[in-house]
Write a protein that binds this DNA or RNA. Structure first.
Length: 111
DNA sequence: CGATTGACGTACG
DNA sequence: TCGTACGCCAATC
């Protein structure tokens, strides 16, 4: 794993997010070493839809647990709906107890 | 080929 | 406490 593309790294991390868990763009960016590269993670997610890989992008939200990218899904409620199916509680665009379901790659993957 | 945008986050005033 | 500015890299116009 030397120079895996930023996008590919994001995919690998997101795909490893366990069910019922969520993480943030910044956490992934930080894990990849690009602290301020959270925007790139967002781009990677956007590309994940066009990618052949199945990326659970609904498990990736901003740092406050807000479903900022739900509009990119087929339906605006699809993202929240999927999260609810995984046992998460979502109110509007906000994940309830986000910190309790937070999955930090730099910790879980024990970099 | 140059400028702008984009699913974010942190810093500063 | 709230609002604005900047940084990161890639894709699109």
């Amino acid at each position: 794993m030397e120079k895996a593309s930023f996008f590919k790294d994001v995919y690998e991390v997101v795909k490893q997010i366990p069910k019922g868990k969520v993480t943030s763009y910044g956490a992934i960016a930080n894990y990849l070493g690009v602290k301020s590269g959270a925007r790139m993670v967002g781009w990677a997610m956007n590309a994940s839809f066009t990618s052949e890989e199945t990326i659970p992008a609904h498990r990736v939200v901003n740092r406050v647990g807000l479903l900022t990218g739900k509009h990119h899904f087929g339906s605006a409620d699809e993202m929240a709906n999927k999260l609810r199916e995984e046992g998460l509680k979502v109110k509007g665009d906000q994940i309830i107890a986000f910190d309790k379901h937070f999955w930090d790659p730099s910790v879980e993957l024990a970099l």
